[in-house]
């Protein structure tokens, strides 16, 4: 396998997800994953790279993201058009449920993809906007550990804000 990929013009790397699914990615995509770039530079990327913290479902999304970004950036279009295009893509791409977002965020951190990490963090932060306290707890599965008395005390501290 490795000998045949070296013959082709574009180098290809194999990524193995937590659940054993193997993905084939081109070098231009693979190097966006900072972790993998290091492995490639250290020549430790054969026969395949095992990513123990990422499921195939999430890895597929990550690769889709990196692919689009790699293509857009090398596409030769003007910078402003590329920017616009990436923005639309990012917005679409982030249109997934919270649990996927959380996993993407964690994967972006693990694979060290700065732009995706920033994007997922910002998206998660924006989910909190326009939601009530109860909705935020429910969405992120955060338990309300304030007792009635404690919650009252916090609200009292901000009494001027809830008038």
């Amino acid at each position: 396998m490795s000998s045949s990929t070296e013959l082709t013009e574009k180098k290809v790397f194999l990524l193995k997800s937590l659940d054993g699914v193997i993905f084939e990615v081109e070098e231009s995509v693979a190097v966006q994953l900072e972790v993998i770039r290091e492995l490639i530079e250290g020549d430790c990327a054969r026969p395949f790279i095992s990513l123990y913290n990422v499921t195939s479902e999430i890895l597929a999304l990550v690769i889709e993201y990196c692919k689009h970004h790699a293509e857009t950036c090398s596409g030769g279009t003007s910078a402003t058009i590329a920017d616009e295009d990436l923005k639309t893509f990012d917005n679409e791409f982030m249109n997934v449920d919270e649990n996927i977002l959380l996993e993407l965020c964690s994967a972006a951190d693990y694979l060290d993809i700065k732009s995706l990490f920033e994007l997922t963090c910002r998206t998660l932060a924006s989910l909190i906007k326009d939601r009530t306290i109860i909705e935020v707890r429910k969405m992120f599965n955060v338990e309300n550990d304030f007792s009635v008395v404690e919650e009252k005390a916090v609200r009292k501290e901000f009494a001027w804000a809830f008038k």
């Binding site: 959380l102 964690s106 951190d109 963090c121 998660l124 909190i128 906007k129 306290i133 309300n144 901000f158």
Partner: peptide, 29 residues
């Protein structure tokens, strides 16, 4: 944030706009 290590959760929470901070304080201890 259940599902995220705390350092990543903090990275998300610090990006929440300032006018939501009062609300964040009341979500949990």
């Amino acid at each position: 944030l259940p599902g995220l290590p705390d350092d990543l959760a903090i990275a998300c929470l610090i990006r929440v706009p300032r006018n939501e901070h009062r609300k964040l304080r009341l979500v949990c201890k």
